[in-house]
Design a protein around this nucleic acid. Structure first.
Length: 451
DNA sequence: AAGATGGGCAACCGCGCGATT
DNA sequence: GAATCGCGCGGTTGCCCATCT
């Protein structure tokens, strides 16, 4: 198989990125796009391999990254998606705008697994630990079972007599997910009947194991409401909301076609699982996802915060709290409240609908025109650039509507100020870092520290 | 105060896949 | 069809920091 030529090259820097390197890479990509990653380090004047540059960009420098602690909604969503997708972090990340797979993976390994275990839930199988232990006692896993994730194991179980086992399982899971999240009855639902009918044809004892009841699911959903003994820090106390509790904007209507899959992934590739999973199943999951994320009052920090003096000018360039203007970041909704109401922000949910990253991250060739979430009004095309500038959410949506690769040149005029202010902000950032004392900051990450 | 320990996170590594030659 | 290239993904490592002893 092809091995990265860069892996054999010597004298390439490794390890943590310096601010200078970050700036070089940022400037280069902002100016020219990344194009071929292998040529990026050379063009940008970096002693790094292209792979490293790509990783740095994706995980750290991308302007659309949202940093900071995960919200409860995000945590719950990750748990639920993991129950369906397993360790497919990229696909999970695709459902959490502004989050990277690496970030989610780290969160899972360091925090969420622990939380689940504390709640008596096996993080691999998403089943009660007691059930898992009993199963292991009575049926020691084989090597292959050891290697497979719990989800995979469940999928295998369903393969016994179902031509599309993943679909069946996903339908089972997603129905539960979509249902339990909103306090609807699980028992007696059509989905549970489907599950039962499947199970009835299956002699595998595992399939006949008691389906976790509603309380179990609800309990799981409330995990994040529990006192946080793991040190993880939920950033709010929202939890899952019933649809009627959700604060939909008056001018935004979700039109969800139940006959088609509901994708609004960041990367159109990542969740293109029609060949792999049941579209109905995933659409159920994602309708849960949509409901849990979209309607939340401005759940995301803006990718481009704004200058405290002039709200029309982004005050900062790099995403992430490391460069976050404290005033702008601490109240992201306020920063955009000048002419854009939260309803407007929410109405532009096409941010999710357009499965494109303008930065060339995603497979941009297949913007899913068939995406079944339609924001009827406030189409991005109708939004003026001044509005974008005052509304980071609109900006993101607008940028994502652009043509992928050439886009970078197109948006250059809008983003050149980024590079122009970049140097100043680096200096500012470093200056801040120098002045940071222990009481000011809990921990300084490798290069800068969260500000 | 100093060392040990554990957690969180950024980055690296190895592999697989698709495209290209 | 084989070799190579480039990209993306998931697993793992290692560093830094906070807390504990």
């Amino acid at each position: 198989m092809g091995r990265h030529s860069c892996c054999y090259k010597q004298k390439l820097r490794k390890g943590l990125w310096s601010p200078e390197e970050d700036e070089k890479l940022l400037r280069h990509i902002t100016k020219y796009g990344h194009g071929c990653w292998s040529s990026v380090p050379k063009q940008a004047g970096l002693q790094r391999c292209g792979k490293s540059c790509r990783l740095r960009w994706i995980n750290y420098l991308r302007p659309d990254l949202k940093r900071g602690t995960f919200s409860l909604q995000e945590e719950n969503l990750i748990i639920e998606l993991h129950s369906v997708l397993g360790n497919r972090w990229s696909q999970i990340a695709a459902q959490l705008p502004g989050r990277t797979d690496n970030e989610i993976k780290n969160l899972w390994n360091s925090c969420l697994k622990k939380k689940l275990r504390q709640r008596g839930i096996d993080p691999n199988t998403h089943k009660p630990l007691s059930e898992v232990e009993n199963r292991e006692d009575s049926n020691p896993p084989t090597d292959s079972q050891d290697k497979a994730s719990g989800v995979s194991s469940e999928l295998n179980l369903l393969k016994v007599d179902n031509s599309k086992p993943e679909a069946a399982l996903l339908e089972q899971r997603s129905s539960s997910i979509a249902t339990r999240g909103y306090g609807m009855e699980v028992e007696g639902s059509s989905s549970s009947k489907t599950i039962n009918s499947n199970n009835n044809n299956n002699s595998n004892s595992n399939l006949m194991s008691p389906t976790p009841n509603k309380d179990f699911f609800l309990d799981r959903f409330m995990i994040s409401h529990q006192e946080n003994s793991t040190g993880c820090q939920p950033s709010d106390v929202v939890g899952y909301l019933a649809p009627q509790q959700l604060n939909y904007p008056s001018n935004a209507r979700l039109s969800i076609n139940p006959t088609q899959p509901l994708w609004f992934s960041q990367s159109s590739k990542t969740l293109d699982m029609n060949s792999e999973f049941s579209s109905n199943a995933v659409s159920s999951v994602l309708s849960s996802v949509t409901s849990s994320l979209l309607p939340s009052p401005m759940p995301y920090k803006p990718s481009i915060p704004f200058h405290s003096d002039n709200p029309s000018i982004p005050s900062f360039t790099l995403s992430g709290s490391r460069f976050w203007d404290a005033g702008a970041s601490t109240n992201s909704s306020n920063s955009s409240s000048g002419s854009s109401s939260s309803a407007e922000l929410q109405s532009n949910s096409s941010f999710f609908e357009n499965s494109i990253f303008p930065w060339g991250l995603a497979d941009c060739s297949t913007s899913d025109k068939g995406a079944q979430i339609h924001i009827i009004e406030s189409e991005p095309e109708d939004i003026k650039w001044p509005e974008y500038l005052q509304n980071p959410f609109l900006m993101a949506a607008a940028l994502q509507n652009q043509t992928p690769q050439p886009l970078y040149n197109e948006i250059k005029s809008e983003t050149h100020f980024i590079t122009e202010t970049s140097s100043a902000m680096w200096a500012h950032s470093q200056q801040q870092q120098e002045h940071l004392q222990a009481p000011d900051i809990q921990r300084l990450p490798a290069t800068f520290g969260h500000i």
